[in-house]
């Protein structure tokens, strides 16, 4: 596997000019959806998905497809994993459970916040929340486990 800085690839992107985060250029699918990174540090990540008519799952209501929320939460969880202090150099989603609490409001950006609360030798555990502007009114919640590969600790 090529040596890469996964954290850099996941947490840096191209500024979009409007000052709201950077487009996730390192992840083609996330970039195609228009996802942006607002912050990612110490096992926490905040992402934003601007409302995008291409991601609508029900033309009658204009509500985003549930899958778009799934993709946002998955990306957010993975981003949180690589920003822990555990020196994670590669990650893959093992499982992901999503509870869809309420539909996203058409026309509004969706935010996702993830916390990686445990990194074991080969597995990381993450929880995440998707919402518009009120974290107490979540659109969806996620619980995920990721397989991780960690950089070996250097022996003194």
């Amino acid at each position: 596997m090529p040596k890469i800085d996964l954290q850099k690839r996941l947490t840096e992107g191209k500024a979009d000019g409007d000052g709201i985060g950077n487009v996730l250029t390192g992840l083609p699918h996330s970039a195609a959806m228009g996802m942006r990174i607002i912050s990612a540090d110490q096992g926490e990540a905040l992402l934003m998905l601007p409302y995008n008519p291409d991601l609508v799952g029900d033309v009658v209501t204009g509500i985003l497809g549930g899958g778009a929320i799934t993709a946002l939460l998955d990306t957010c969880c993975g981003t949180a994993v690589v920003t822990t202090k555990a020196r994670v150099i590669s990650t893959a989603t093992l499982d992901l459970r999503i509870d869809y609490m309420r539909p996203a409001t058409p026309g509004e950006a969706v935010y996702a916040h993830a916390t990686c609360y445990r990194v074991a030798r080969s597995v990381a555990f993450v929880r995440a929340l998707a919402y518009h502007d009120d974290r107490d009114r979540p659109i969806a919640t996620a619980a995920a486990a990721f397989i991780v590969e960690r950089k070996a600790e250097k022996k003194e």
Binding site: P28, H29, A71, D74, T75
Partner: peptide, 27 residues
């Protein structure tokens, strides 16, 4: 299509794209 990729280095499909695909299939 290239837009479905999550990890360009492996390369691998984005878990979110696969997840959305499964969900749409069920719907």
């Amino acid at each position: 299509k290239p837009d479905l990729i999550g990890n360009p280095l492996l390369p691998a499909l984005h878990g979110g794209a696969t997840g959305a695909f499964l969900e749409i299939t069920a719907v």
